[in-house]
Design a binder for these strands. Structure first.
Length: 399
DNA sequence: CCAACCGGGGTCTGCCATAGTA
DNA sequence: TACTATGGCAGACCCCGGTTGG
């Protein structure tokens, strides 16, 4: 049977069925719409197969519908989802309303995502985590995908983003807003590469309302202006490219963090500007409690080791990334270094060693001492070198 | 050749609350 | 009034290597 023959035969089956009866079954409506919707040949075949295989089951359902429409429509949906490997309990907990809808498009969503190269497992996982995805129409999905493709070079990259964060793509149905967001972000002067990073790293940015994004950009411009920057637009470009996640933070969070940096380190306007569009850009994402808690812990620990508050400020400022470290991580790393007779002053000279994982620190300390390298008297910088450079060094030491 | 200096890159979702809407 | 759309929140590093100067 060729494709067009199959299509014809299905169309005639469609015509012979009683229309109101068919309308009672959501799934038949969905499959029918697949024909109207412009899909590629093999996809048409695929949907036709789903249709043919499920006719007995669906007719049975239609029969039963006269008894209790609500519960059976729901049963039908549940069956579909079950077949797709969806974690129903999880999905129901997440968005119970989706399960009460008269019409859902799970089959079409599946066909759509398959055509973009997503696997069955990924599709099941997407629906489990963001069930409202099945309420989107193929037309709307197509349009949204098309807009994302203006930024991403391939479907596969988008599939990867969806797998990580289904909500970002499906939470909003407002494609015009998405289009306007893209226009707006371009107008801010972000390069294509930067947009690409934005979509990859903070896909939620594009589901934000245009207004919310505008608010953040405005806030950043005003901040830079009040700090005496002569080119606020350039500042915004810089800060977004340093910190692609900034547009998914609340202005309150970013504002509080900027104020924290200013007051904690007594910075003048110029230094503060350099910090927040440089090494401090990512710190702005930290939840406000987190920033304070982590800094307080560093301060507490160093005070107990006899350092002055001014020394502590200078130390943290010399490598602001350490403020990402939770209390436990920071303390464990310091403990681990001190146990090896490494002094605090060595750490202060090489704050980047705090960047290495505890695992790396421990392994390297062991290997180095085995090779006869005395960390208490020699440089500890190599604890934070790249693996390649470190191994070359270890080889020289051993050989 | 070696190490210091320094910037860059990946990755940041999944849940809750609530105003708005049909 | 059930459901949707949207804003906001908590959570909390590790690694690589280009360039430069000795």
């Amino acid at each position: 049977m060729t494709l067009s023959e199959r299509k014809d035969s299905l169309t005639s089956i469609w015509k012979t069925l009683d229309y109101p009866m068919i309308m009672a079954s959501r799934n038949i409506c969905c499959v029918r719409r697949n024909f109207l919707f412009d899909l590629r040949g093999w996809m048409l075949q695929y949907s036709a197969e789903i249709f043919l295989k499920s006719i007995p089951f669906r007719l049975f359902n239609v029969e039963c519908n006269s008894k209790g429409k609500e519960s059976l429509e729901n049963k039908d949906l549940l069956n579909n989802l079950l077949n797709m490997g969806v974690d129903i309990d999880r999905a129901r907990r997440r968005q119970p309303g989706v399960f009460n809808r008269a019409v859902t498009n799970e089959q079409e969503l599946k066909i759509f995502l398959l055509s973009k190269g997503a696997s069955d497992t990924v599709i099941g996982s997407i629906i489990s985590r963001y069930p409202r995805a099945i309420t989107r129409t193929p037309e709307s999905l197509s349009k949204r995908w098309e807009l994302w493709r203006k930024i991403m070079a391939s479907d596969l990259e988008i599939v990867n983003i969806l797998e990580r964060s289904p909500e970002s793509f499906f939470r909003s149905n407002d494609n015009l807003n998405l289009e306007n967001n893209i226009k707006f972000l371009c107008s801010v002067g972000l390069t294509h590469k930067c947009l690409c990073r934005l979509l990859t790293n903070a896909p939620r940015t594009f589901s934000n309302s245009l207004n919310l994004n505008k608010q953040m950009v405005k806030f950043l411009q005003e901040t830079s202006r009040s700090l005496g920057h002569n080119d606020p637009t350039d500042f915004v470009r810089k800060i977004i490219s340093k910190n692609p996640s900034i547009l998914i933070q609340s202005t309150k969070r970013v504002k509080t963090n900027i104020e924290f940096l200013q007051s904690t380190f007594n910075l003048n306007k110029e230094d503060l500007l350099l910090l927040i569009c440089g090494p401090g850009a990512r710190v702005l994402d930290l939840s406000n409690d987190c920033t304070k808690k982590n800094y307080t812990n560093i301060k507490k620990r160093l005070l107990s080791l006899g350092h002055t508050e001014e020394e502590i400020q200078r130390f943290v400022l010399s490598y602001l990334n350490m403020i990402f470290l939770s209390e436990k991580k920071f303390n464990d790393k310091i403990d681990c270094l001190i146990e090896e007779k490494i002094s605090m002053s060595q750490i202060i000279e090489n704050p980047r060693v705090l960047d290495s994982s505890i695992n790396t620190l421990k392994t390297r300390i062991r290997e180095l001492s085995h090779a006869g390298y005395d960390l208490s008297t020699s440089s500890i910088a190599l604890l934070s070198w790249s693996q390649r450079r470190y191994e070359a060094k270890l080889k020289r030491l051993s050989g």
